[in-house]
Design a protein around this nucleic acid. Structure first.
Lengths: 264, 264
DNA sequence: CCATCTTTGTGCACGCGTTCACAAAGACAT
DNA sequence: ATGTCTTTGTGAACGCGTGCACAAAGATGG
């Protein structure tokens, strides 16, 4: 997962579990595809397959929205598209500002996903004076001095941060102070925000590192076929001295030299 | 979260919970920052604050790795950096290929997060012949015809997909067939892969839609102080005609022009 | 060497999320 | 109208993740 919620004890908003909310966009996408192919109805089994989830989970998810299906038949595609769109708040227009128009910011500005479904890029903001006025994806970049003004005038409540990590918190603070209550953070930093503000983060490094972990595990597994599920009771508490060696030089012969294999 | 694992019943890899693995990169980042400031030791409380998590959670997470702390003192920063790096497999070099060099792919290619920690962009691949040979972020783009060759020669096991949704599955299949076993997917599609292949996805649309949901809820709460948890008992089935709204199905003209990423 | 103080490591309980399995509901054929 | 067949909606059980609260461990001072 490239993103993660910032604390909040999973406040089951209005009775809909957070995990379900996170899947609704997935269902919506699959349903939209069906709609474009003029498919009238779909069963939970089919839709679940298209969305890559368990059919029971899908049915339970939908049950939180209401009883929109017909037993023996399935779900009406158009109707469900509308219901989910409404539930997600996509029937209204959400103006969004993107702060930090570097490579990533520019890519986001040109991202079709914005315009297509309820979201509208209200403004592009960058701190570099050289960028001001320059059009990116057809939208002129505005200077960050005007951040507050822009947000107030357009009634923006969702902000996207694509700045360097160093200034992300600062930008975040200004956005929040100006009235933004939802933030999508692409900067590799933990943002702290007051209660009532939602932050979701998208972090490439973290995703890659998680993949690397599993990749390493796979490599280690196929190599060390000896110890069964685990190579040698790693639970060993005496594995390392409390706070001595820096490079983990503590005695583990098969550690410093063995790179990929041997999880130990 | 912008990402999500593709099925796999939370296989507690080698005893380390998946949730913990997902947080290790966060700890590592915070620790690296401390290391750069030459801070020798850190308590679970301090580190937890820096990483934005609960200190008990952090201690429990570390307990899965071993007993690397010293009671009454805390954790040795350098030592912990090494241990986590090793656990995540970052002590080795991971060659990565990026497929689909549109706006997003180019932005990813130039992303500093790659080079900084164990990851190396081994190749940029695009299907457009006009792109072939053209340097992006200092790396010449190669044609997708050579995809298999590139992966085999460099021993690439991690692939990043930044293509339009329409060809993502196809690209994925070729990557997997060529030997890639971990995929980071930026295309708005559910990828199906054989067992043993990890897929993580980063989906901008989904993140925005989740934010919109909460944003709507916030707006509804402060406005509809009457109905309590919801503004007007929306459960009411009669809210909308069964098959009227064409919300998304209508204008999706802008489709062929979308370069790197496709709308939801 | 003993007392005190700090901080880790973890047993335990709780809650969310997932999955199974099945009864209820409706379509459809006869 | 009745029976059969399909598919939904959900009760219940299970497992993972989280957070509390505390005992154990070690540092530090006298």
């Amino acid at each position: 997962m490239a993103t993660g919620r910032t604390h909040r004890p999973a406040t089951r908003s209005r009775g809909i579990p957070e995990a379900t909310v996170a899947r609704l966009p997935l269902y919506l996408r699959a349903l939209t595809a069906l709609s474009e192919r003029s498919v009238p109805t779909v069963s939970s089994e089919e839709l679940a397959a298209a969305a890559g989830v368990n059919s029971a989970k899908l049915r339970k998810d939908f049950s939180y929205l209401g009883s929109y299906g017909t037993r023996g038949v399935g779900y009406d595609v158009e109707y469900l598209v509308y219901q989910i769109s409404r539930e997600l708040g996509l029937t209204q227009d959400w103006p969004v500002v993107i702060v930090g128009i570097g490579n990533l910011g520019a890519a986001l500005a040109g991202y079709g996903g914005f315009a297509s479904r309820g979201f509208r890029v209200a403004a592009l903001i960058d701190a570099d004076p050289a960028m001001t006025g320059k059009p990116v994806a057809g939208i002129p970049v505005q200077h960050s001095d005007d951040l507050e003004k822009i947000i107030n005038e357009d009634g923006v409540s969702i902000g996207v941060i694509a700045t360097p990590a160093g200034v992300a918190q600062q930008v975040c603070d200004r956005l929040v102070a100006a009235g933004v209550t939802s933030i999508l953070n692409f900067a590799p930093t933990v943002l702290s925000v007051p209660d009532g503000v939602d932050v979701r983060k998208v972090d490439l490094s973290i995703e890659l590192q998680i993949l690397a972990f599993h990749e390493q595990r796979k490599a280690g597994e196929e190599a060390g076929a000896e110890g069964g599920p685990d190579s040698g009771t790693d639970t060993g508490a005496p594995t390392a001295p409390p706070a001595a060696r820096t490079a983990g030089g503590s005695r583990k012969g098969p550690d410093g030299d063995v790179p990929a294999v041997m999880p130990a």
